[in-house]
Simulated scan of single mutants.
Amino acid sequence: MKTNLVFVLLVLGTYFSTFAQQTQARKSEIKADVVEKGLIKVSIFYPYAEGKTFDMDYYEKSHMPFVAGLLGSNLVRYTIEKGIASGIPNTPLPFMAIGSFYVKSLPDYQAAIAPNRDAIRADFPKYTNITPTILVSEVVR
């Protein structure tokens, strides 16, 4: 009986140790995807409208990497989102796409973008006929 109890305790100990390690690994994965408080987020919104087009492949493979490359070490990460639905059923899609840059410093972002503004805008017709709306915000959480 004691042997069975010891065996069960060893199995349970191993199980809970493995479970704790997996839980800690998951927490680390989640933290790696969290954006730091205080970062600046530059969001570029491409509103949906009849007759407007958007080439996601070009945006993902050419335009966003091009702009990201201009930002240098100020860039923490960038994201690309493809609109798929409105939050309200049977209503038009609000945005075809949203691109976001997370940067450490707004002045450094502006200094990198300003001399390249014309080149960035000249790239727009290669992937869209939409005039984007830009929102600069601070990450609070």
Rank of each mutant, 00 (worst) to 15 (best):
Tyr58Arg: 02
Ala32Tyr: 01
Arg26Asn: 12
Ala122Leu: 08
Lys82Met: 10
Tyr109Ala: 07
Asp123Cys: 06
Ala20Thr: 12
Lys2Val: 05
Ile88Ala: 10
Glu29Asp: 14
Asn116Met: 10
Ser62Ala: 13
Gln21Trp: 13
Lys126Asn: 14
Asp108Pro: 10
Val76Ala: 07
Thr53Cys: 04
Ile40Lys: 01
Asn90Lys: 13
Lys61Gly: 00
Ser43Asp: 02
Gly83Ile: 07
Leu10Met: 12
Asn116Ile: 08
Pro89Leu: 11
Thr128Leu: 04
Arg77Gln: 10
Met64Pro: 04
Pro94Val: 01
Met1Glu: 14
Phe66His: 11
Ala114Lys: 14
Asn116Trp: 11
Asp33Pro: 00
Tyr109Asn: 02
Asn116Gln: 14
Arg26Met: 15
Thr14Met: 14
Arg141Gln: 09
Phe45Pro: 13
Arg117Lys: 10
Met96Arg: 05
Leu70Val: 04
Val103Met: 02
Gly99Leu: 09
Gly69Arg: 01
Asp118Lys: 15
Tyr78Gln: 02
Tyr102Ile: 03
Ser100Gly: 03
Phe54Pro: 01
Ser62Glu: 13
Leu71Pro: 01
Asn90Glu: 13
Ser17Cys: 13
Arg141Thr: 00
Val140Phe: 13
Tyr46Met: 03
Val42Asn: 03
Val76Met: 10
Ala97Ile: 03
Pro47Thr: 09
Asn4Leu: 15
Leu9Gln: 08
Val76Gly: 00
Asn74Ile: 03
Ile130Phe: 04
Val6Ile: 14
Phe66Gly: 07
Leu106Tyr: 13
Phe54His: 07
Ile130Gln: 02
Ser17Tyr: 15
Ala119Thr: 11
Met64Val: 13
Asn4Phe: 15
Val103Phe: 07
Thr133Asn: 09
Phe54Ser: 05
Met96Val: 14
Gly83Arg: 00
Glu138Asp: 09
Ser100Tyr: 03
Ser137Phe: 12
Tyr109Gly: 08
Met56Arg: 00
Ser62Cys: 13
Glu50Ser: 14
Tyr58Ile: 02
Ala97Asp: 02
Met96Lys: 10
Leu75Met: 05
Thr133Lys: 12
Thr133Met: 15
Pro107Phe: 02
Gln24His: 09
Thr18Met: 14
Gly72Thr: 03
Met96Thr: 12
Tyr78His: 13
Thr3Gly: 08
Pro65Cys: 06
Asn74Phe: 10
Glu60His: 12
Gln110Gly: 00
Ile40Arg: 04
Ile80Thr: 05
Phe66Trp: 05
Asp55Gly: 10
Tyr46Asn: 06
Tyr59Glu: 01
Val35Trp: 11
Phe54Cys: 05
Asp55Glu: 03
Ser100His: 06
Val42Leu: 04
Lys27Ala: 12
Glu36Ser: 14
Pro94Trp: 05
